[in-house]
């Protein structure tokens, strides 16, 4: 199997605090992998270790076949990073910012124009960054992260503080990038976002992975064997998904009382609460 990321028994301790405890997972090339957990669960620490910004206390971390802590400058050219606190040069224009990074990454000629089109900022390229909205700045950051066509893209809460319209645009961009072959490692506490974008997700809680699978597999695994009925008189009823329940449903339908039938498929958020015992915040 060709892996972009291989993490085995990763642990990180800060003083007395265990930030990560024996975390293990692999991410296949071309996969969108969601790393989900509430604030303080260890998501950002994991990204920092994966990108060589922090050293792990124990365990093995390989990125594109090399230990993360031994990445050379040239290896950094194969990855892209967008964190929620990434900065831009505010006095410079969008184009000047991207031109600068294109030269640092030795990106192909014309790539700046290409990514400006991709993120929908071609019309605004002459604007100083300080005059852009939060959503537009986030798109510049994404443009910067993908300028050099990275093989692996790390996104740490990429849509935090974005309005729903900009979130949708960002998701479309990420899907396009993934279709072109970019492996995406996404950390988020937004379960809906993870369900829409990720091939697989891992639930991180108190520095440990509590569950890991494809979103639809998790939904099957944690599905309750019940069906919700919404009746015309305003009542709601939950019935078992078995012959007794079928008979009950038949009775309601025969009496023309059924307004709607809902499956009881759990959301990723429901599963997270069931697995960890706490809500995402």
């Amino acid at each position: 199997m060709d892996y972009a990321l291989q993490v085995k028994d990763l642990s990180k301790v800060f003083g007395q605090q265990r930030a990560l405890q024996q975390v293990s997972f692999n991410v296949k090339k071309g996969e969108v992998f969601g790393f989900l957990g509430p604030s303080g669960s260890g998501k950002t620490t994991t990204v920092k270790i994966l990108t060589g910004q922090l050293l792990q206390t124990a365990g093995e971390v390989n990125i594109l076949g090399k230990p993360a802590s031994k990445m050379k400058d040239a290896d950094l050219g194969r990855i892209g990073i967008l964190t929620d606190n990434s900065g831009l040069y505010e006095r410079m224009t969008v184009e000047q910012n991207l031109d600068f990074y294109a030269k640092l990454y030795n990106a192909a000629a014309g790539r700046v124009e290409e990514v400006l089109q991709l993120v929908g900022l071609a019309e605004d390229k002459k604007k100083p960054v300080k005059k852009l909205s939060k959503g537009m700045k986030q798109r510049v950051l994404l443009a910067r992260a993908v300028l050099h066509k990275p093989e692996v893209l790390f996104l740490d809460e990429p849509t935090s503080a974005l309005d729903p319209g900009n979130v949708q645009k960002m998701h479309d961009l990420l899907r396009d990038l993934n279709r072109e072959g970019t492996t995406i490692f996404l950390t988020t506490h937004n379960m809906e976002e993870a369900a829409q974008l990720c091939d697989r997700v891992a639930f991180l809680h108190e520095g440990q992975i509590r569950e890991m699978d494809a979103p639809n597999q998790l939904q099957r695994k944690y599905a309750k064997n019940t069906i919700h009925l919404e009746l015309k008189d305003g009542r709601n009823e939950t019935i078992e998904n078995n012959p007794t329940g079928a008979e009950r449903l038949y009775q309601y339908m025969q009496a023309e009382e059924v307004l709607a039938v809902h499956s009881d498929q759990p959301t990723l958020g429901d599963i997270f609460i069931e697995v960890t015992g706490r809500k995402l915040a």
Binding site: T51, G52, Q53, D73, A74, L76, G77, I81, N85, S86, G87, L88, Y89, E90, Y101, L104, Y105, N106, R144
Partner: peptide
């Protein structure tokens, strides 16, 4: 202060 130095250090520039 603006978190751009960390971005530079994560680039291929030495």
């Amino acid at each position: 202060e603006k978190n751009t130095l960390q971005v530079l250090l994560l680039s291929p520039a030495s």
